[in-house]
């Protein structure tokens, strides 16, 4: 029995009364905190993050920084807290210690929704598209917070992912795995973020599609958008990375340029399979 008596459903799975599909974890009702000035830091700077999901800490003083237009990649063994670190940067878990600043503003107290308005874009690993809606509607929903005309942005995204233009009237759930990831990235780009965060964008897609996706990500970075990415395919990811972080047990183990890490014998032995 969980601690919250309101979440006790006694194992009921009756679909004629309760709809479990699409239920989320994010708290949509929390009031967001304030933005404080924090000059003199790198473009994105998440310093000394300590925290976890209620039970115990997963992050033990993890630090991640990204400069403007840079591609940063977080790699590491399973359970190292890679995704957790990214979620912490995005505000999806409460930090006990540490701070997150973006472009000279301290956003540690902000909810994820508020961070989107501050210029962060996030592509979750799973459930990252609206499957029952068309591709175009997905992009529209991505631009929900924008009050201005977003048609030009949509055209840019169709130029970046031409296949989406052809399929824009099709339900996103009917697309192939790689195409879905393109929709997911496109959706996140609709807010014109300054920092795009991708949680394992190539999970479950074929190697050819993976290369294609990485090419597109490089293209996005060339437009001046910083990229922070968690990846299982460490070798390929580090090849395109300007900066790499190897996390072990929720703390930084190795940091360097992608090329340095690929060349580092210790990193090769421990994480890249020799």
């Amino acid at each position: 029995m969980s601690g919250n008596p309101y979440q006790d459903d006694r194992g009921n799975r009756d679909r004629s009364i309760a709809n479990p599909l699409g239920v989320g974890e994010v708290d949509g009702y929390r009031e967001s905190g304030e933005v404080k000035p924090a000059p003199g830091k790198p473009f994105l700077s998440a310093e000394g993050m300590v925290g976890g999901y209620g039970g115990g800490d997963i992050l033990h003083g993890c630090t991640i920084t990204v400069e403007r237009g840079e591609i940063a990649v977080i790699v590491g063994p399973n359970g190292a807290g890679k995704s957790t670190a990214m979620k912490a940067v995005f505000g999806m878990l409460d930090l006990r210690e540490g701070s997150v600043t973006l472009d000279g503003r301290d956003i540690t107290a902000l909810t994820p929704q508020a961070r989107v308005r501050e210029g962060m874009g996030f592509v979750p690993q799973t459930s990252n598209i609206f499957t029952s809606m068309t591709v175009e509607e997905n992009l529209e929903m991505g631009a929900f917070i924008r009050a201005d005309d977003f048609r030009a942005t949509m055209e840019q995204i169709y130029d970046l992912f031409p296949i989406l233009r052809d399929k824009r009237r099709q339900a996103a759930g009917e697309l192939s795995g790689g195409q879905r990831q393109q929709v997911a990235v496109g959706r996140a780009l609709m807010t014109q973020p300054q920092l795009l965060m991708l949680d394992e964008p190539t999970a479950g897609v074929s190697p050819i599609v993976m290369d294609e996706l990485f090419d597109r990500i490089i293209e996005v970075a060339r437009t001046g958008i910083s990229i922070l990415m968690v990846e299982q395919n460490a070798r390929q990811a580090l090849e395109i990375a300007d900066k790499g972080y190897v996390l072990v047990q929720g703390a930084n183990a190795h940091t360097g340029t992608g090329r340095d890490l690929l060349a580092d014998p210790e990193v090769r032995r421990a994480f890249l399979g020799g």
Partner: peptide, 8 residues
């Protein structure tokens, strides 16, 4: 495949 006890 899933319960429909309530309506039934």
């Amino acid at each position: 495949r899933s319960d429909y006890l309530a309506i039934a």
